[in-house]
Write a protein that binds this DNA or RNA. Sequence first.
DNA 1: TCATTGCATAGATATCTGTCAATATATTTC
DNA 2: GAAATATATTGACAGATATCTATGCAATGA
Lengths: 103, 103
Amino acid sequence: METENISSICKALGDPNRLKIVQMLSGCEKCACVILRAFDITQPTLSHHMKILCGSGLVNVRKDGKWSYYSLNCETLRDFQEFIGALDCEKNTGCADGKCDCR
Amino acid sequence: METENISSICKALGDPNRLKIVQMLSGCEKCACVILRAFDITQPTLSHHMKILCGSGLVNVRKDGKWSYYSLNCETLRDFQEFIGALDCEKNTGCADGKCDCR
DNA sequence: TCATTGCATAGATATCTGTCAATATATTTC
DNA sequence: GAAATATATTGACAGATATCTATGCAATGA
């Protein structure tokens, strides 16, 4: 996955409300009306946040009648998890022969 | 780790330049001057980005003479990786007995 | 068909953010 | 001490963002 896409996902999760929404969607598809009740924001604001989350690719929407059901996108989430999981906090493993001349 | 902290890290990584900086620091401590050369931004702008990255807790700074060496903070990174890794894209595992009434 | 409901869009606005030039500070070197 | 170097801070500004109210639209139900 491109750096730009990862950055876009991070940006989406950079808003506390959106991060909490993603937490709500972890392991559970939910309709907008249920999500809305969990937050102290207006319905248009939620709609705005969901649009950004969907735009990042991290969230899917499924329309059923007048309801919109949101869930996490497996492929995007896995790519994102892989990217974050690959980050290494060691200070010189990224350098050949343990000699870190990349400073 | 608190949701606010995770959100703060995501916000920091939401800027493409900052995400690339973190990628550069993965497995390798680097001084600001080296990072600067890799980007098409001015020195004050880099300083600003590094301050935000450090503020999120994801990046450490070590001063040595007139140089500043940056690296990823192991504890924060692990907490962040754990949080992201725990996200689940299944649609009803978060509900008791497989009955997802949380919609 | 008409009212209700769930959600999206449009427009407005206050705040936040990324960037730069100018400047300051601290360290090293001559 | 003066010059050079590495980094931080300040102030300004254009553009982005989160939020709201008002409104639109499609689906449902009486």
